[in-house]
Nucleic acid binder design. Structure first.
Lengths: 250, 250
DNA sequence: AGAGGTAAACTGGTCATACCAGTTGTCGGG
DNA sequence: CCCGACAACTGGTATGACCAGTTTACCTCT
């Protein structure tokens, strides 16, 4: 962790700031779906920014399908649960006061559990020799770092990244990019939470071997078992957190 | 189809046009990853647009993670397969001359097949009474339109939308929004392609019933069987298309 | 009084221009 | 040869004007 003592100063531009602020307000339900935003001129004045900077933010909100803009009409808030894409997951992970939304964490882990087995199956079906070599190599590295779980965690990310590439499924690959991004926000915490999964070196080896010999059934089964370990741990954790929360606010 | 005789004139703004053009060029590989774009001033002049309009497009490309912008530095093309989100699927579906990319279609259907069973399982686990009623109602409507497949296809979309909502998994819900959007671009074609699936009214009924009584195993199994029907048809079609293509260009 | 149409007053969309704020490279002095 | 200051880039922000749609209110005609 010595590498991260100094957090890089992230200079945030005005339009980024505006985008994040409006996005947060919409996702937290402070502006209900269907409601009209103030006109660009008024909103820019309210926020104390230039109209151009505001427009950059609004166009991005439109692309994220959080608002819909109509030339001549007003800009309205969308029902984002029915329109937005997975990119919103990282925003929804956090609740107002810095806490995390356990239902979102559970959702992400459920999706991971559903996708990983099929990714492994397809990888066994379609992996090129390069992919196979890369997988076996990564697993070898993991085995050589049996005592450093955090290092293996980073290698596991490489492992799954290679798996997704080997599956040759572009939908999985793009979904993985987004899921991975939300995962990285909890990277340090996950080192302990996913201990059972990360310590199961035999499973990673078995998956790589199965893919190497094109054994789809075995790859699928082993991958399912592996990610279930981490998922079960996370489910237990979020269940406990939810029990605490409901108990704490009677 | 009488309702759609007149296609609404979709006035496209300058910044939308620029965004689409640059996005297409990047996705088609005409600008390789890591390459620098011309400066905003030059690019605006090349495109014949104002710098502000160009910036709106560039900020959207950055949000889609197709480019990375650095204050003071140059704007560079990203390796979008490793960065972009699922929203890019709709763009990648189409190849330069208007044809479709069969590998993308296959990817989407594979993802659908992987997610649908788990969505059904979770729906059986978590559906509220309102969700159950809505599902049973939709299935009832489908059964009453046994002869109009296109109408049932629209109802099937409602069915799955309700299923996803009932699963209470926000990751599935957001992914569904994106997948559904790409699906709707082929809506008319799919009426025939998915005939086997859409005609299996008993399956929809079985799933709704299983969810109504909280039978997770049955819901999962029936959903898996149902979507497999459509997937198999699509796989057969794209396999044939690919065989034609490779044969046509020796 | 009601229906119709027209104009004014909104809304977002585009533009030109200037300047601020970073980064990069170059050139001169130590 | 090293190093620091200064151009000359780059993107970021701001102002103000005008274009292009939509909505509304009012006025006219039936």
């Amino acid at each position: 962790m010595l590498l991260r003592v100094f957090t890089p100063v992230r200079r945030r531009s005005v339009s980024d700031e505006v985008f994040d602020q409006l996005k947060a307000r919409i996702v937290r339900g402070e502006m209900e779906a269907g409601a009209s935003l103030p006109s660009e001129r008024k909103l820019a004045e309210l926020l104390g920014v230039n109209r151009g900077a505001l427009r950059e933010a609004l166009k991005r909100l439109e692309q994220a399908r959080l608002v819909s803009i109509q030339h001549g009409g007003t800009t309205r808030v969308e029902a984002f649960l029915d329109t937005a894409g997975m990119d919103l997951l990282t925003e929804m992970l956090f609740v107002e006061d810095g806490g995390i939304d356990t239902t979102v964490v559970r959702s992400v882990m459920e999706m991971r559990s559903a996708l990983a087995p099929d990714i492994a199956r397809l990888a066994a079906l379609r992996a090129t020799d390069d992919h196979k070599d890369a997988l076996l190599d990564v697993v070898g590295q993991m085995e050589s770092m049996a005592r450093d779980r955090a290092a293996r965690q980073r290698l596991a990310m490489t492992f799954w990244g290679t798996m997704v590439a080997a599956s040759r499924n572009v939908a999985y690959r793009l979904a993985y990019n987004t899921l991975n991004r939300s995962y990285q926000q909890f990277f340090e915490v996950m080192t302990d939470v996913l201990a059972d999964e990360l310590d199961d070196l035999a499973a990673y080896r078995a998956i790589a071997d199965a893919i190497d010999r094109g054994d789809t059934a075995s790859a699928e089964r082993r991958a399912s078992a592996l990610v279930s370990k981490g998922a079960d741990q996370v489910f237990g954790l979020v269940d406990a957190l939810e029990a605490d929360t409901t108990k704490g606010t009677p």
